[in-house]
Amino acid sequence: MSVKQNPLRKYIRDGNLPHFFCSGCGCGQVLNYFLKAVDDLDMNLDEIVTIGGVGCTARIPVYLSTDTFHGVHGRTLAWATGIKLYKPELKVVIFAGDGDLVSIGGNHFLHAMRRNLDVTVILVNNFNFAMTGGQVAPTTLFDSITMTTPYGSKENCLDICKLAETAGATYVSRWNTDKPMQSVNSIKKALQHKGFSLVEIMSQCPTNFGRYSLKTGDTKKVLDWIVDKSVPKAKAEKMSNEDLADKFVIGEFVHTEKPVFLGTTVYNQDEK
């Protein structure tokens, strides 16, 4: 009897499965979406460097059969810059959780976008610090209960896509794990984009965010919570700010061209 193998299995580093994500976690879905995009585009994984910092999402690249940097919290875009400027021919893809990207890594994120560094960031936003056990994150909604906000969070949450738009990212989109086709399409666009691309995928974390903030460890219920709050961009444009207050707008927000970053100052022999 022949065993049928997942056609994307060839992109996984030998001996690394099963993965260590919790049952119901969206990171496995995002891994699939990325590989589907790579496969559809017929990209050569030898020419892609993947990067993960620290956190659940940061483990995604560890499973990939690519050159990979992993293991330091928040510094993904600093790594990405060193690689991209020295070897511009390589494609650099960063997998980052919300804590990794905009909490500890916020400053690097901001400046990489400002420079229009030619890399792709796939952000998995699960609204909390999951690997460390469910603490409040910059993306946690106001009044949410987490392991470090037992009386509710009194911090305002950050709209990362809005930040990216303001900071100068040249491709920005947001989906959730319930939108596989849109997510794959956006990742494909991001991978083909010349410049800083951000694809945010809101993802269910039943183990920590679900249990503490939503009082359920049920994957479907946590995902339903995200889906109920997700509003397509076209619909959102007709809604009041008040109605959008605790909603997540999904869609493509930015897709433009700008010169990419090659260094803080670049010598041009022709001009001398």
Binding site: F69, V72, G74, R75, A78, W79, A80, T81, G82, I83, L85, Y86, K87, L90, N107, H108, L110, H111, L262, G263, T264, T265, V266, Y267
Partner: peptide, 28 residues
């Protein structure tokens, strides 16, 4: 830059050291 190298003024020292480490692993 005039000898074909890359110069970056980073946003902080963490940027400096990590971009240096990754550039080094990329061959620099």
């Amino acid at each position: 830059p005039e000898v074909g190298g890359v110069f970056v003024q980073g946003e902080d020292e963490l940027f400096s050291i990590y971009s240096v480490a990754s550039a080094a692993l990329a061959g620099a």
